[in-house]
C-alpha cells in the first residue's frame, strides 16, 4: 500500500479544532455580554461600543466569527458523510462557502458599525 500525506487536511482540521475551542470558550461569553449583560444594563452599551470601535477588536471578532462558522461547516460536512450522504467532495463547498459568506457579512457589519 502506498500512502502519501494529505496536504490540505491539517489546515482544515486546525481551523476546525480552533473553531471548536473558540466556540466552547468564547462564544458563550460573547452571547452573555451582548445578549444578556448589555440589555440588562450590567455593562454600559457605550463601553461595548467603545471597545468594538477599535479596529483591532473588530478584526478579532470577525476572525472569531470565521472560526465559529468554519467549525460548523466542517462538522456538518462530515456529519453528512457519517449519515451516508455521499462523498466528502460533493457538499464541501456548500458548507465552506456558507462559512465564508457568513464571515463576509460579519465583515460588512463590522465596517458599518
Amino acid at each position: 500500500m502506498t500512502a502519501k500525506p494529505d496536504k490540505t487536511a491539517p489546515l482544515f482540521w486546525l481551523l476546525f479544532a480552533g473553531g471548536g475551542t473558540a466556540s466552547a470558550m468564547l462564544l458563550p461569553a460573547m452571547v452573555f455580554v451582548t445578549g444578556v449583560a448589555v440589555p440588562a444594563g450590567w455593562v454600559a452599551e457605550d463601553d461595548l461600543m467603545a471597545l468594538i470601535g477599535n479596529p483591532l477588536t473588530r478584526l478579532v471578532v470577525v476572525s472569531l466569527v470565521f472560526l465559529f462558522l468554519f467549525h460548523w461547516a466542517h462538522r456538518f460536512r462530515y456529519a453528512l458523510v457519517d449519515l451516508g450522504f455521499g462523498g466528502l467532495g460533493k457538499q464541501a463547498w456548500l458548507f465552506y462557502g456558507t462559512a465564508l459568506a457568513g464571515t463576509g457579512l460579519a465583515g460588512l457589519a463590522a465596517l458599518r458599525l
Partner: peptide
C-alpha cells in the same frame, strides 16, 4: 509512520464519533 497515518484515509477520516 507519518505517510500512512496522515494519508487521505488515515487520521483525517475520523469524525470523532
Amino acid at each position: 509512520r507519518s505517510d500512512v497515518v496522515t494519508a487521505h484515509d488515515g487520521i483525517w477520516r475520523c469524525t470523532y464519533v
